[in-house]
């Protein structure tokens, strides 16, 4: 039971999608989207990363469920680090300083 063989065609289609997304994000950065530009840039980055992880890194074809768990856990823990750190930084200004 060797690993799933992904066809060359799939790889090339994914690569074309990655290149297209890269052109899109580079082009959109030249247009003012206001508050949305960061959101859009990060959304495109996430899609690109997902394409690489799911296809190039074979996670989509992985029959070991644990690989999915490991990948999701990695990003979930990164989320914990970023989110809980930001609870501090985003709420620091809420409470005024006595005497000011």
């Amino acid at each position: 039971m060797a690993e799933h063989v992904v066809s060359r065609k799939t790889y090339i289609v994914v690569w074309i999608a990655l290149m297209a997304l890269m052109v899109l994000t580079a082009g959109l950065s030249r247009i003012d989207l206001g508050e949305w530009s960061t959101v859009v840039a990060m959304a495109i980055a996430v899609i690109k990363a997902l394409l690489v992880i799911l296809f190039f890194m074979h996670v989509r074809y992985e029959d070991q469920k644990i690989t999915w768990v490991v990948v999701i856990a990695g990003f979930f823990w990164l989320g914990i680090l970023l989110a809980l750190s930001m609870t501090d930084y985003l709420s620091r200004g809420y409470l005024g300083v006595a005497g000011h």
Partner: peptide, 10 residues
């Protein structure tokens, strides 16, 4: 010196 609100959460 962390935010008091973050302290509550933690």
């Amino acid at each position: 010196g962390i935010s008091a609100y973050a302290a509550l959460v933690f």
